[in-house]
């Protein structure tokens, strides 16, 4: 039982570390501010989620595990809001019309 739990922890935390790696590589390689924002928020949020998932079985109690999930939920909310605020600031609400692709009316 405890071995199976440890394997879950190791797999999840390793996967989390991989997404932190991907986020940083994206940050270094992506060409402009807005694309870098994608790399940062999407990859790192998933990385944090997987690290939390790996730590939950090690928390020792149901409450400890739920507390970890609370931290992740708050971080996810913060990420969703901050990425929008920074994106709106960086794009200056303009956007190049030539690059726009209008959707059909609903």
């Amino acid at each position: 039982m405890s071995v199976a739990v440890d394997i879950i922890t190791i797999v999840a935390i390793t996967a989390g570390a991989f997404f932190f790696l991907a986020g940083t590589v994206g940050l270094l390689r992506f060409p402009d501010t807005l694309t870098r924002l994608h790399a940062l928020t999407k990859a790192d949020n998933l990385g944090l989620g997987l690290v939390v998932l790996g730590l939950v079985p090690q928390a020792g109690s149901l409450r400890g595990g739920l507390k970890l999930l609370c931290v992740w939920a708050l971080a996810l909310l913060a990420g969703a809001m901050v990425s929008q605020l920074i994106a709106r600031e960086a794009s200056g609400q303009r956007g190049d019309p030539a690059m726009r692709h209008d959707g059909p009316p609903p």
Binding site: G16, F20, G23, L27, T33, R36, L37, L40, T41, D44, N45, G47, L48, V51, V52, L55, L68, V71, A75, A78, G79, V82, S83, I86, E89, A90
Partner: peptide
């Protein structure tokens, strides 16, 4: 805005590191 992302990076990564 690029610089501002530093706070976001340390926010998410720092939480993982702290845990």
């Amino acid at each position: 805005a690029d610089r501002m992302m530093a706070a976001q990076l340390i926010g998410t990564g720092g939480i993982a590191a702290l845990l």
